[in-house]
Design a protein around this nucleic acid. Structure first.
Lengths: 170, 170
DNA sequence: TTTAATATTCAGTATATTTTGAACTTACCA
DNA sequence: TGGTAAGTTCAAAATATACTGAATATTAAA
């Protein structure tokens, strides 16, 4: 893979990062690690992406929190090196898990709390909708929990549901 | 439902907007329509949420693009009135459909395009990962298409997968 | 067609997020 | 222990995003 192609991927992934819940720099760092054959040092990353060392440091920390990047040591080198999780499905589930935790869980908790404060016999269209919405989110939450607890099964199930789409050559 | 409780819901929903991919104002407008028994005018919305009419207008336009808000006419009144889609599951699928279109589809298209530019025999860990990622996204895309094409079936399937979680009282 | 009420647009402003870089911390080695 | 290479933090600056409100457009009644 040539240099310019890697760069194109890094920038494309960077722009798409926001859609996955990462900011541009985080996504570019992630992309660079995805297309790199070998682990990279913080310095190499900062230099290659033309971002500050401080920014690179924070992006790597956050990517490790998301569980999609690992820090490794190289013999005879004091620097830290970074690698992306090599299994794309593991990466996908790591991101899904984190987004559920950050986005779905708090919404559901807030809805339950809000419903808990209503008087017993509260009625009306608005209350009905709130309850339905809570049930919907609870369903999604339960499904997500099961899927995330059984990654391998979930992966097969998705491939099955897709109807062999993964076999096609694009 | 009392006034202050509605307000609390509106603000809570506003903060949660990011879950759905809406900004705070859009989410608050949406929330206000969710808890309102009757259709509201643009003026009423702007006044109630303390936002400008211009902002309210843009939020409503966008919410209509997402397919979660409808504009209705009231006899003998020149103003437009707005309603939220009353079925929460329809609302959920409308949002899911829109997010797939905005987020998943472009990423997949870009990945395919990038892979298409690689020389025939391109190899290496990086290329392998890109192909795996394309396959993963293609699988998700196929599953999403099928789910969105059959809302009712999908709804039952989700409830089944959740293992009756929706019956529990919170 | 004119007028007035309502709705939309968009340039400028306000707010929020991201990035920088210098100060600080840590870890290693002589 | 001091020196140094690497890593982290955070206040300030840069950038991106959202909001306002006046100008403009649209609509419907007169």
């Amino acid at each position: 893979m040539k240099q310019t192609q890697k760069d194109r991927f890094v920038d494309a992934w960077g722009q798409m990062g926001s859609l996955w819940g990462l900011n541009t720099s985080m996504a570019r760092v992630h992309a660079l690690l995805i297309v790199s054959e070998d682990p990279l040092s913080l310095d190499a990353i900062a230099h290659r992406l033309q971002i500050s060392r401080g920014n690179a440091s924070m992006c790597l920390k956050e990517l490790r929190n998301w569980g999609v990047v690992r820090r490794v040591k190289v013999r005879g080198d004091r620097r830290d090196y970074y690698l992306t999780e090599p299994e794309v499905w593991k990466m996908f589930f790591a991101i899904a898990r984190e987004r559920k935790r950050r986005e779905l869980d708090p919404v559901l908790a807030a809805l339950r709390e809000l419903l808990g404060t209503l008087p017993q016999g509260a009625s009306g269209q608005a209350v009905k909708r709130l309850k339905e919405m809570k049930d919907l989110l609870a369903t999604l939450d339960a499904v997500a929990s099961q899927v995330l607890a059984q990654e391998e099964n979930a992966r097969s199930a998705l491939a099955f549901l897709a109807g062999g789409a993964t076999r096609k050559k694009t």
